[in-house]
């Protein structure tokens, strides 16, 4: 029974990683850059949830406000920091992204101070089925993550804007020749990725009620690893990588002999997968353009 609980916890954590990984992978696929500051958007989401939860007492309202606010933050970051560097060397963009990351953390520290804040969002209780005890927070997180991923998949594959995102990701210039405004598509991508980061931030607080300026760092790195494992640029890859990493991490933590090594095992897995398949599990080999 404990096996099932552990597995569910893993899937749920994996769902959160997947939501974050989607932000990395979509921005990478479409804007061709590593958004190093993506993890900090989780933190911005965390503080936004905290502020509006304290004001309204409504976790859902706080989460929705965080989603909207983080989308705006993502769009503004893209416009001010990344857009002027379009066409610049990838290294310049990466360093700018690191700068943005520190900027967001410092701003949060100036506004909220450096002490950790405890935010008890909600306790939905436990579901007891015979000897099986399931934390409802976990279930809600998992189901929401699945619903969001399904909606995103439909959006990307079925709507005109979604298809334009795929087109830009495959061949930016060809997409421009179809009349697609690449800048607009990149802006939408940042908005979606940042909204997902806000959702992930909310779930993170639901699981660990601790808000701090560095709360985005570890989930950010884990989710980035997940995106690379799945094949960076691939949307299903980010989902698969996130779930995989969440399950492995939770299972390792549940086994006493392995619990000290869970991070080492996760990154070891990354290295092995990249050795066997350098493009990641679902990543495609980049075709040479004529």
């Amino acid at each position: 029974m404990e096996v099932i609980t552990t597995f569910l916890n893993g899937l749920s954590l994996g769902g959160v990683y997947a939501l974050i990984a989607l932000g990395y992978t979509m921005v990478y696929g479409i804007a061709k850059m590593l958004n190093f500051a993506h993890g900090d958007v989780i933190m911005v989401g965390g503080y936004t949830v905290m502020v509006f939860f304290n004001l309204t007492g409504q976790p859902l309202v706080a989460a929705l406000i965080a989603v909207v606010f983080c989308s705006l933050v993502g769009v503004v970051i893209e416009k001010l920091a990344y857009k002027p560097l379009r066409g610049a060397s990838p290294l310049a963009v990466l360093i700018t992204a690191i700068g943005v990351s520190y900027l967001l953390e410092s701003l949060a520290q100036i506004i909220f101070g450096s002490s950790h804040k405890i935010v008890m969002l909600a306790d939905l209780g436990k579901l007891i089925l015979g000897s099986l005890v399931i934390d409802l927070n976990t279930v809600v997180t998992l189901l929401s993550a699945i619903a969001i991923m399904a909606a995103l998949t439909l959006f990307v594959n079925k709507t005109k804007t979604g298809k334009a995102m795929l087109a830009v990701s495959e061949d930016r210039h060809a997409a421009e020749l179809m009349g697609v405004s690449v800048n607009k598509i990149i802006m939408i991508t940042f908005a979606i990725g940042s909204a997902l980061a806000a959702v992930a931030g909310t779930f993170y607080i639901l699981k660990t009620p601790d808000v701090s300026t560095t709360m985005g760092a570890m989930p950010g790195i884990k989710a980035f690893t997940a995106a690379v494992i799945g094949g960076i640029g691939s949307i299903p890859g980010a989902m698969l990588g996130g779930i995989l990493l969440g399950v492995i991490e939770t299972v390792c933590n549940a086994i006493p002999a392995l619990s000290n090594f869970s991070i080492a095992i996760e990154f070891g897995l990354l290295i092995i997968i990249l050795l066997v398949k350098p493009t990641g599990l679902l990543g495609k080999k980049k075709r040479e353009k004529v």
């Binding site: 298809k163 795929l166 210039h173 020749l177 179809m178 009349g179 495609k284």
Partner: peptide
């Protein structure tokens, strides 16, 4: 464009839809 540059991962119908994007 030179080299055709069709969207290899989209379907034939979706490529035509992209052509009509505007």
């Amino acid at each position: 464009p030179e080299g055709r540059r069709i969207f290899q991962e989209l379907t034939v119908a979706e490529n035509l839809e992209m052509g009509a994007y505007t």
